[in-house]
Amino acid sequence: MSSIRYLAPARARGRDCTYNLFRNRLRPELLCAVPEDRPVPGFLDPGGWRYERALRPSDKSPPGFEERAARAGVRFNGFYLFQITDARAELAA
Rank of each mutant, 00 (worst) to 15 (best):
Y51P: 04
R38E: 14
R38H: 15
A89I: 03
D37K: 09
R27T: 14
F43T: 03
N77Q: 11
P35N: 06
L26Y: 12
F82C: 03
T18V: 15
N20G: 13
F43G: 01
L91E: 05
P62A: 07
I4R: 09
R23N: 01
V40L: 09
A69N: 08
N24E: 13
V40Y: 04
P35I: 07
M1I: 05
G14W: 01
A92Q: 10
Q83R: 15
R88V: 00
L81Q: 12
C32S: 07
R75D: 11
P57T: 09
L55K: 00
E90M: 13
S3G: 08
S61G: 00
G64F: 02
L91C: 11
L81R: 14
T85D: 10
E52Q: 05
Y51C: 00
P39Q: 09
R11H: 15
G73K: 04
G14N: 10
P63W: 01
A93F: 10
I84V: 12
P39V: 08
L44N: 03
V34W: 01
G42R: 04
G47I: 00
F76S: 12
A72E: 10
F43L: 07
R15M: 15
Y80I: 01
P46V: 03
A8N: 04
F82P: 02
G48I: 01
F76Y: 12
A10Q: 12
E67K: 08
L55G: 00
C32I: 14
L91A: 05
R38I: 06
Y19M: 13
R56P: 03
F79P: 00
G64T: 02
L31G: 01
R50I: 06
E90V: 13
R50H: 08
V34L: 07
K60T: 05
N77A: 09
R5A: 12
P63Y: 02
F76G: 00
N20S: 15
R56Y: 13
R15D: 10
E67C: 05
